[in-house]
Design a protein around this nucleic acid. Structure first.
Lengths: 111, 111
DNA sequence: CCAACACATCGACAGATGTCAATGTGTTGT
DNA sequence: ACAACACATTGACATCTGTCGATGTGTTGG
């Protein structure tokens, strides 16, 4: 069940820069897996579009069209993937995007 | 089983530019799904790194460590995703990367 | 203290996905 | 023509994944 630790460096140069070894490919793939689901992409975009750049989970459930447990699950995956950070304030959980992480993945796709 | 047609425009502005509607998210997700597997990432990188920028399927089976049918399967998915093109010459199939497609996905990740 | 709340976790289940062996299809050289 | 080749397709199977209802955990207001 996932590693969740040490996901911060996307590790590699562009996919086009040379043949990836199995380990690098595995790590990169798990990064893209986080983006490979419509529910997660929408959640990501909603957090990014939120005022102050952060969104409370409570404001994501209804517009996402998924159940609360499902939303919680996806948000956890996005955090594990390093794309979001989570900050618990009172009884709310606030999420923000990690632009560096997006940039790192973007870099991998450089043609 | 898959749509495979009309995959050419990644359709949308950066994920951070606004809330994605369900359709856009679905389309984007299927694009990233193609990148969400280590075998496919390696195949993609191998094609990109090949001389002349194209590679014969026959040269990808052994180094990929997967069976011939599996490689064929993954290459087909990458073509469907618009990341590779396939050109059949004689009894060989030659694959090349589609840099515009990579660039389009890259654009979606712009922070 | 207790009820209401926000969120996470668990258990279950259907559907998707990666993989391979076996087989099919088209091409080439002899 | 035929055998060997390169590749695609099929069928089968184990695993992964998204989803939800039910339940657990911590926090807040009265």
């Amino acid at each position: 069940m996932a590693k969740s630790i040490q996901v911060l460096d996307v590790c590699c140069s562009p996919v086009t820069a040379g043949v990836l070894d199995e380990d690098a490919a595995e790590e990169l793939a798990s990064a893209f897996k986080a983006l490979a689901d419509p529910a997660r992409l929408r959640l990501l975009s909603m957090v990014a579009a939120a005022p102050e750049g952060e969104a409370c989970a409570c404001d994501l459930v209804e517009p996402s069209g998924r159940s609360q447990p499902t939303v919680s699950h996806h948000l956890a995956l996005l955090v594990d993937a390093g794309l979001l950070t989570r900050e618990k304030r009172g009884r709310w959980a606030w999420y923000s995007v990690v632009p560096e992480r997006l940039a790192a993945l973007q870099d991998v796709l450089r043609p």
